[in-house]
Computed example of a mutant assay.
Amino acid sequence: MARFHPLQVAAVDRLTDDSVALTLTVPPELRAEYRHAPGQHLALRRRVDGTEVRRTYSICSPAPDAEGPDRLRVGVRLVEGGAFSTYALKEIGIGDELEVMTPAGRFTLDPAPGLYAAIVGGSGITPVLSIVSTLLAREPEARFCLIRGDRTAASTMFLEEVADLKDRYPQRLQLVTVLSREEQQAGLPSGRLDEGRLTELLPRLVPLGEVAGWFLCGPYGLVQGAERALRGLGVDRARIHEEIFHVDSGPAASGTAPAAAHSTVTARLDGRGGTWPVQEGESLLETVLRNRPDAPYACKGGVCGTCRAFLVSGEVRMDRNFALEQEETDAGYVLACQSHPLTEQVELDFDR
């Protein structure tokens, strides 16, 4: 079960004018709980004017050994009007304590030999930095092609960290950078990494048939465009892994069937169950939270996947889904924050 613990801030490193990296100290008694796979994320929470605010940030540091990490590092980019990102950039200092959830997320890679690739935009580099650094350190027979898009060199997060990786693994890390608002002295011309450009570019960069896994991370438009380009080039959907950081106006992911007028939800959470009536208009997560405040969630926007639950029985409508892979929904998993009951009884299991 995901749990929050207070962790102390050990370092605040300015990456760009609008982003920082926060390093958190993990005490010995909590290291096992904060073991993480490369690519997972943390939810951070604080109270603003009496309201709890949670935000999810990916871990950029390499995955730890079996004992767990003594430190965790996350990247935070400022979002205009963001309640947590503004606080992170302007107020958080060394020695402060932050409420941090234990790691979650399935945008991960188990290190193995072979060729892997990523297409990232902006802060989408954060989880991929953990994936690349862990893979190349642990698996000497692995190679990685990193294709990243940013506005300008000055706005590029983890510029030095990626350059250090390239210097460390010059034969095994292929780095391709595209800037949309700035010309480079060498490399590719400026412009956005959209579907058309990627369709033309990717076959020239990597042997598509040899790539064991593609990792797409960043804004909704970039991830969707990259997926369409890859599928159009014949890449099997099972080899494509996605994590979306920002969704401005993406479409609803499923139909608009009306919710049941009178419904109850039965939920199993941390070994205990309960049954409660669903109030009109609320999601199943909201129903569960009214009765079990320890239910896991972070973004409530269908993006992070923290509230994933197994649909044991009944039917639901998901308004949006930007977190679950097709095989997960086929297996019966739903996002509780986006699910509304279509039957009078619905049963969820958060423990599976």
Rank of each mutant, 00 (worst) to 15 (best):
I131N: 06
E80C: 04
R55E: 02
G50F: 11
G301V: 03
E227S: 12
V346H: 08
A331H: 10
G209I: 02
A43P: 04
D110T: 15
S254R: 14
G305F: 01
I240Y: 05
V303N: 11
C307P: 05
S85G: 04
P189A: 12
T264R: 14
T287G: 03
T266P: 05
D248T: 13
L159T: 07
P203R: 10
V303H: 10
R47M: 11
P62Y: 10
P170A: 09
H5G: 02
G209C: 06
L179Y: 14
H5Y: 14
V9C: 00
L78G: 00
A112H: 13
R181N: 09
C145Y: 00
R55Y: 03
V334Q: 03
F350G: 14
A336H: 06
P6A: 12
A83R: 14
L324G: 01
D194V: 08
E328C: 01
R106F: 10
P127S: 13
A10R: 14
S254C: 08
Y169G: 04
G82R: 12
L44A: 09
D351E: 04
T343Y: 04
A43H: 05
R352C: 05
G75F: 05
G114S: 08
L72D: 13
V79P: 06
S254N: 12
S123F: 14
A154K: 04
L342R: 15
V100N: 06
D110Y: 07
E227N: 11
V76N: 05
D17P: 01
S249V: 03
V176K: 07
R31A: 09
E99T: 06
L165G: 02
L269S: 07
Y57Q: 00
F322P: 03
S123T: 15
R268A: 02
L216G: 12
F144S: 02
F322Q: 12
A154E: 13
L198Q: 12
